[in-house]
């Protein structure tokens, strides 16, 4: 089986039941792997998309940019995610999907995905659930962007990414890869680069985490989580332990 499809199945198994019929249908999907260098656009805003992008390696992001050049990043995506699953029914992109780090993306033609849904109808519910969880994550980000101070907002981002990377099997103990510049981070948090830098130094000084723009290491999970007011229920994992125990033990 293609490694991108394997990553997708790992992702789907964390949020629902994946039947053998589903797996056969997914394994039959034609994928074309492409490499995107950091900073490049995978599918630009306004483009008509004809395939879904399954992330295999690295981080992708979704964003929109105002005419004055100010960019807001809405979400980050890693191995096993299909950040543009909605393009199946909304093919004209209303935002940009880009590579925030070097990325390997498996492109799956829309027709092939629709064909798989015909052959394995239980996939419809599963992929719908994935899209709904994506929307739930947007609500959580919106709440932090609109209502939380910069330190809580940053802590929340690191908490979410840590849980997601742990559940995807991509965390190494208390660490996970996150190749982001401070400008990327400030476009995620909606704060100036200087305030972002200052906030990061504050979290470091409090001994909550370390981040060298390549790797995040969580140093004090409970304190970080309390600062973030982080409740991972919005990620809707089947495993009810998520959020109630140290995710490093998952």
């Amino acid at each position: 089986m293609n490694s991108a499809i394997r990553a997708l199945i790992i992702r789907l198994e964390t949020i629902g039941e994946v039947t053998e019929i589903d797996k056969v249908a997914l394994a039959a999907l034609p994928v074309q792997e492409r490499f995107y260098t950091r900073g490049s656009e995978i599918i630009p805003d306004g483009e008509i998309s004809t395939s879904c992008c399954l992330i295999l390696e690295g981080y992708a992001y979704r964003s929109k940019t105002l005419p004055d050049g100010n960019r807001q990043i809405f979400s980050l995506h890693t191995s096993g995610d299909i950040p543009d699953l909605h393009s199946l029914y909304l093919p004209k992109m209303d935002h940009t999907l880009g590579a925030i780090s070097d990325c390997i993306v498996a492109r799956i033609p829309h027709d092939a995905v629709k064909d798989a849904l015909m052959r394995a109808p239980s996939l419809i519910g599963l992929l719908w659930r994935d899209t709904l969880i994506d929307a739930a994550a947007f609500r959580a980000w919106m709440l932090m962007l609109g209502q939380a101070d910069a330190a809580s907002r940053m802590a929340h981002l690191f908490c979410e990414l840590y849980i997601r990377q742990s559940m995807a099997g991509l965390a190494d103990g208390n660490s996970f890869a996150l190749p982001l510049t401070q400008t990327d981070l400030s476009d995620i948090l909606g704060t100036s680069v200087v305030h972002t830098n200052r906030t990061l130094q504050d979290l470091r000084r409090r001994g909550l985490l370390d981040f060298d723009q390549q790797v995040v290491t969580i140093l004090a999970w409970e304190e970080l989580r309390a600062l973030a007011q982080f409740d991972p229920s919005y990620l809707h994992y089947l495993d009810r332990r998520v959020g109630r125990v140290d995710p490093a033990k998952l």
Binding site: A150, T191, V194, R198, Q201
Partner: peptide
């Protein structure tokens, strides 16, 4: 005191960033 610093395009950008940060804080 800032121990790490920040790479920015020029002094005008640095001033703008400083003022934005001050307003945010």
């Amino acid at each position: 005191d800032d121990t790490t610093g920040q790479e920015l395009a020029d002094l005008a950008t640095a001033k703008r960033e400083a003022v934005k940060a001050l307003a945010e804080i």
